[in-house]
């Protein structure tokens, strides 16, 4: 079982399968970083993204490019509407974390209920076939889907990094993430940054759901389960560290893939959650030290 080709296959397929999860984790982690919110409404947006593409492709017969654009449109719209009419209201009311959590979760469930009503509960895929052409490279099976996934994952993260480092809006995101009130004093609009974040997260969501939906069947409830993997990656990567969250996602996926070598598949999930449990406890970043501000007087 330790044949290098098999190991390479496990690595490659694990990496490729992780790509949609990494994309949705990056979206989730970015939202958390900038807005400070654990946005479980993302599950609802993921459902919106998938079913928009599904409807465009299968009910309206539109070409794939148009379907993707439409999905970006609807997901962004849902995101911005939630931001403006839900989250901002709660923010103004200075609601506690638990309220935000329950609100976003119930909103997701509600969106999913509506989608269930329209689309039913049968598993659906974007395209009729869930197979994609495969080539054998060095003994390892590499499918077109694999390459698209890995490409979107790396390309997406790189593009985000460029955006956050070199564009003004991107830099503003970091400023707002750090201290929204301070950023406002410098003329940076926190709300605009929240909207930019919503748009970027939507792009990642659409990419992620495209990958998942072309690879296997989705039912309206699937996004609720998927979003939990985003939470895991974000936690392990560290709150506020978007790319670390992506890396953590890859790491988790590879652990799960390789664990098949020595662990019965039925215990994989337990391994994952146990790992998470211990990791959070060993790094209790919840303990905050009171900040010590020491005014440095020049020359003294």
């Amino acid at each position: 079982m330790y044949d290098p080709i098999i190991l390479a296959q496990i690595f490659w397929t694990g990496l490729a399968s992780a790509s949609p999860h990494v994309l949705m984790t990056v979206g989730f982690a970015l939202t958390l970083k900038v807005t400070g919110l654990w946005n479980f409404a993302q599950a609802g947006f993921m459902a919106v993204a998938f079913y928009t593409m599904y409807m465009a492709l299968n009910w309206l017969g539109l070409p794939i490019a148009v379907a993707v654009l439409l999905a970006i449109g609807t997901t962004v719209a849902a995101s911005l509407a939630t931001e403006a009419y839900g989250l901002q209201v709660l923010r103004e009311r200075q609601s506690g974390n638990l309220t935000f959590f329950i609100f976003t979760l119930i909103l997701s469930e509600f969106l999913i209920y509506v989608i269930t009503l329209i689309f039913g509960t049968e598993p659906q895929t974007l395209f009729k076939s869930i197979l994609s052409p495969v080539q054998i490279i060095g003994g390892v099976a590499v499918s077109d889907w694999d390459m698209l996934g890995v490409g979107l994952m790396i390309g997406g993260m790189f593009a985000l990094w460029l955006f956050m480092t070199f564009t003004r809006d991107g830099q503003f995101l970091t400023a707002v993430a750090d201290n929204a009130k301070l950023a406002e004093l410098y003329g940076i609009s926190a709300r605009r940054s929240y909207r930019v974040t919503a748009v970027i997260a939507s792009l990642f969501i659409v990419a992620s759901m495209y990958l998942i939906g072309s690879h296997g069947g989705i039912v309206p409830n699937t996004p609720l389960e998927l979003v939990l993997s985003a939470v895991l990656g974000t936690l392990l990567g560290g709150i506020g560290r978007v790319f670390a969250a992506g890396a953590a996602s890859i790491f988790l996926a590879l652990i799960q893939s390789f664990s098949i070598l020595f662990l019965a598949s039925r215990w994989q999930n337990l391994l994952l959650y146990g790992f998470l449990f211990v990791a959070i406890l060993l790094f209790p970043r919840g303990v905050r030290l009171p900040k010590f501000r020491f005014a440095l007087l020049a020359g003294r």
């Binding site: 079982m1 098999i6 296959q9 496990i10 397929t13 694990g14 399968s17 998942i212 690879h215 296997g216 799960q256 893939s257 390789f258 664990s259 098949i260 070598l261 598949s265």
Partner: peptide, 9 residues
Amino acid sequence: TEFTGMLLK
């Protein structure tokens, strides 16, 4: 949804 490990085994 992902059966690679099991299938490789």
